[in-house]
Write a protein that binds this DNA or RNA. Structure first.
Lengths: 368, 368
DNA sequence: TTGTAGGCGTTATCAT
DNA sequence: ATGATAACGCCTACAA
């Protein structure tokens, strides 16, 4: 044992390069004012010694960690997985790292997780939706940490947010089915506690039907979590307790695919006997047979933009408060003219030709 | 403006509680020797002032961050998503936080990502597989950071690892199909660069066939990435360039499901005309029609165990070097007796009754 | 352009 | 059980 092999510090690098600690520090950080020769020598010495900066020391002195935190619902959900992935990538490209925490739609767990991230000194935070404990918001305010709300927009424009209007998108789906002549609806909703996205989607359906004077009795609404199995069971329950519906709206694609599989198992023809719609447009939606009518949620773009926006704000650049991404209705094979639909509202004779275009993208952004 | 509202430091809490900085520090960290009264007063003061510990300062002084890093391939892959999820949870339960980085099967990106994590002072690191740049291993060694290899075991027992033997599991799948009388095989392999799991799975198939003197011509092997679309295209290519096979082995479930969907589109009956097998046992595998024969990979458990093992090692507890989790073959509906299978190796008359048990778990751990 | 020196907020080592 | 006080490794005015 020669000397106890502790990893080299910046001071060691400086000594090896024959410069002061300060110069070494400048040479290592990109944009400082250092002589070219000095920079080269320092960098070379650092490389040779296998020097790795000490993040904590750097953070303590500079008061920033080049780290962004994110508190997400379970990553098992494909949309959050792809969002996380895109977020991590956007940050990495800028030399930032993602600190990740997740929770099971449990607000107090979310607060604890966020607290852990804040203690770690994250420079910014990414949250999902607007459902949070006041304590969390207070912590963020006191710590002065910039944050982004994702997947949702903030109508009040108080928070920085990048996402979509789940309610409007959901109304679009409902209207699509109404236009196909459906009058007997059933709904599979997700867990709505601590999940404003699911709540908005449900209220979009309910209110649209109400406006159209189409009833949605309580027995035609069931709640299940976001899994294929839950989708199957939900349809099963609906068929048992209130059969006779011709249109089924699910809170997300995973549930809808479960419903489609259950239909296949029961020889229920889709869309002849039953139309099924989802939400998210995961890869499987366009690959299933029948292909699934759904709303395209740009998860990866949400993740990417959240990262970019946060980085821009940290750099002092202006960004618009709330950014709404398009969430177009994607009409596919799983929805069609109502079987026993009474009076199809519009051109009930023609829609077959429309449906012949499976992957047609109908971006019905409300005209305004 | 009264005083510039900077967030309170431990010194402020100490003052408010009427104790010294040192006592306040001890009162905040669980296991120190402090008087009960002191602890109470300090905690109360901290709560009242909304005190949040400064992680960087703490890390600098204590030389540990209570943070674990993980460098994963894309989380789009369901197995990594659930593994990440379980890992994050296991760590959170112990007061640790997960620092996450991901890469696209790019070794140099992986090294860069790991470096970023090490700079952040992670107390431990989780990697996937054994394919890494020597530079990364050198960094880990020099920094003295404990790490876990996941999804793979390390036969040499040099590294700490928790995972499964992809080769053996893959051989099990192949033998299952051989036993069903298949002699004409086709294989969809994943990207094998920087992915020893995929390599092992492929070699397991190839070697098993070779041992059985069953040919696997080059035209019967295609490579595609891990997506449903790639699975479909791969089957398409195989049918175009070398039709006539009765068994298809895919590198993972996502590809296999793509293949099943393509079969449905082409009216190829599964398993009557073609048997299809996957790997991973994602949720969809048991929900698809036909249900998919595959290997159950305990992704969530791998993530959880990786976290637990790392925490145990950090606590100085002993853990066995390399931990192999069971990866049983799950026989389901997508595999069956070879249509034109020449001389079924064994009891070709009976297997139908076996196949009548769709979800049967056959854990064929090699006897040894 | 480069060097000097004073923090950054906590923990840990000593005394007491 | 508690209190001073010296690290911890780096950044950043400020001075030269």
């Amino acid at each position: 044992m020669t000397k106890r092999p502790t990893s080299p510090r910046l001071a060691d690098v400086a000594k090896a390069a024959g410069v002061s600690l300060a110069s070494a520090s400048r040479a290592m950080s990109a944009d400082a004012t250092v002589g070219d020769g000095t920079r080269m020598r320092v960098r070379a010495a650092a490389l040779a010694m296998g020097y790795v900066p000490h993040g904590a020391a750097r953070a303590l002195a500079s008061r920033r960690t080049r780290t962004i935190g994110a508190v997400f619902p379970p990553l098992d959900n494909p949309i959050f997985a792809s969002g996380t992935n895109a977020l991590a990538r956007a940050l990495a490209d800028a030399g930032y790292t993602l600190l990740l925490a997740s929770h099971d739609y449990d607000l107090s767990a979310e607060t604890r997780a966020a607290r852990a991230l804040i203690e770690r000194g994250v420079d910014g935070l990414v949250l999902v939706g607007n459902d949070h404990e006041p304590a969390l918001m207070a912590m963020l305010a006191q710590a002065g940490i910039p944050f982004e709300i994702t997947w949702m927009t903030d109508p009040s424009q108080r928070q920085h947010a990048v996402g979509l209007d789940h309610r409007v998108a959901s109304m679009r789906v409902t209207r699509h089915l109404l236009d196909l002549g459906h009058r007997e609806f059933a709904v599979v909703t997700g867990p709505v506690h601590a999940n404003d996205r699911a709540r908005d989607r449900y209220s979009g359906v309910r209110d649209t039907l109400e406006t159209a004077s189409v009833p949605l009795p309580a027995e035609r609404v069931v709640q299940g979590d976001f899994s294929i199995a839950a989708g199957r069971r939900s349809l099963e329950r609906l068929l048992a307790q209130a059969p006779g519906f011709t249109a089924l709206i699910c809170s997300n694609d995973v549930q809808a695919i479960g419903a489609l599989l259950e239909c296949a198992a029961r020889s229920i023809r889709v869309p002849t006997d039953l139309s099924v719609a989802g939400f998210d447009d995961i890869e499987l939606a366009s690959e299933m047979r029948p292909t699934l009518t759904t709303v395209r949620v740009p998860s990866a773009e949400i993740g990417r933009r959240a990262g970019e926006r946060l980085l821009a704000r940290l750099a002092g650049q202006p960004v618009e408060r709330s950014e709404r991404l398009p969430a177009p209705l994607i009409e596919r094979e799983s929805t069609g003219v109502a079987a026993s639909g009474p009076r199809p509202s519009k051109d009930a004779g023609a829609p077959d030709s429309d449906r012949a275009l499976p992957h047609a993208v109908v971006d019905a952004e409300p005209a305004r």
